[in-house]
């Protein structure tokens, strides 16, 4: 159904976003003429430097502040014409602020997501319970359902808040910097979960993040808030291959490294010499990594310097007659900081 219905779940049409410092003061326009469309099942990363207007855009898209011009369409309906309750049935959010609900089980917190569907007295229907069950399973917190929220780790809490949002059965799920407080492993786990959720629930998922690598690797679409009042939307590759990402994020002495899909600092002190790396597989990748870190340029072509590396933990390396063990000594050697060989290299 989602593939047959091309109507965007969330759409910005000629949107201008900004804020008023005080009532009756003229509005400060941060972003103007923004056109965006999130299809059902899309995972969209909203990125941009601090102060570019990411939060302003996010707040405008979820209806927390009115647009200065243009429209936000939710499931084809103007956000401004929806009642808060109608909006809550189509759009769910997770915020960065910490949550303290006192004594509540995970299940009770997730059930709060059903409030937009319940009567004013708050009676739960079988449909409510089914939605809560589904949300718990989808967010991977079904095992935690009877635990108090206060007992959980940051990563688990974040998932519970996603489950609570899913219980709203939203067409659009907006997450404000969901991975900010997570360690690397939890972050990758979380990213995989979002990819899966976008596919299984058919919701359009929009998340803001500072993690450029995540945005380029995982997202179906990147919304790039430039510092100049514009928002550029496109596939990660289009934005990276074009100059949008470079223009937005790179300052002096910085460049966008295509291979690593990340911003790097241009190093003026680089010797810039090429070295031919003879190795294979993972070892080759990490050898090139070490070579770059040392300020050299790895190449597969014949040249004056040849680095050959043998498997082992730690590995053994030869370069221009010098040899040693482990990447630490290799990088030190390439930087020209060492003349002597490590102890075990001589004996071996």
């Amino acid at each position: 159904m989602t593939t047959e219905n091309p109507r965007p779940a969330l759409q910005a049409v000629a949107l201008a976003a900004g804020y008023r410092r005080r009532r009756r003061h003229p509005a400060v326009t941060v972003l103007r003429d923004v056109h965006l469309a999130a299809r059902p099942g899309d995972l969209i990363a909203l990125i941009g430097p601090n102060g570019a207007g990411k939060s302003t855009l996010l707040r405008t898209l979820v209806g927390a502040q009115p647009p200065l011009a243009g429209h936000v369409l939710l499931d084809g309906r103007d956000l401004a014409t929806l009642s808060p309750r109608q909006r809550a049935r189509r759009l769910a959010v997770t915020l960065t602020e910490p949550v303290d609900v006192g004594q509540m089980s995970v299940e009770a917190v997730v059930a709060l997501g059903r409030i937009p569907y319940r009567s004013w007295v708050g009676r739960e229907s079988g449909r409510d319970r089914a939605a809560v069950d589904r949300a718990l399973v989808d967010a991977g917190v079904a095992d935690l359902r009877d635990r108090p929220l206060t007992d959980l780790s940051d990563g688990e809490r974040q998932r519970v808040m996603v489950a609570r949002a899913l219980a709203q059965e939203p067409a659009v799920l907006v997450l404000d910097e969901p991975t900010a407080f997570l360690d690397v492993a939890r972050r990758i786990e979380f990213a995989a979960m979002l990819t899966r959720l976008a596919a299984t629930t058919g919701a359009a998922i929009v998340l803001s993040t500072h993690d450029l690598g995540f945005a380029l690797r995982r997202a179906d679409q990147v919304w790039l808030v430039g510092g100049d009042g514009t928002v550029t939307a496109g596939a990660p590759e289009d934005l990276a291959y074009g100059d949008a990402v470079t223009r937005t994020f790179t300052g002096e002495n910085m460049s966008f490294d295509d291979a690593a899909a990340t911003i790097v600092v241009a190093d003026d002190t680089r010797p810039g010499a090429n070295v031919r790396v003879v190795a294979d597989g993972r070892l080759r990748q990490w050898a090139e990594h070490a070579v770059r870190r040392a300020g050299w340029e790895p190449t597969a072509d014949p040249c004056d310097h040849v680095l050959s590396i043998e498997h082992g933990a730690p590995c053994r390396w030869h370069v221009n007659g010098a040899r040693g063990v482990g990447f630490e000594s290799l990088v030190a050697h390439l930087r020209g900081r060492t003349a002597t060989l490590p102890e075990d290299a001589r004996t071996g």
């Binding site: 979820v62 006192g102 509540m104 709060l112 997501g113 409030i115 007295v121 708050g122």
Partner: peptide, 24 residues
């Protein structure tokens, strides 16, 4: 207060979350 019980539950999450759940 019977009618306030559910909105107050939403307020436990904080004002912004309560707003996102359609609570005035």
């Amino acid at each position: 207060s019977v009618f306030l019980a559910q909105p107050l539950n939403a307020l436990l999450l904080g004002d912004r979350y309560a707003g996102s759940l359609g609570i005035n």
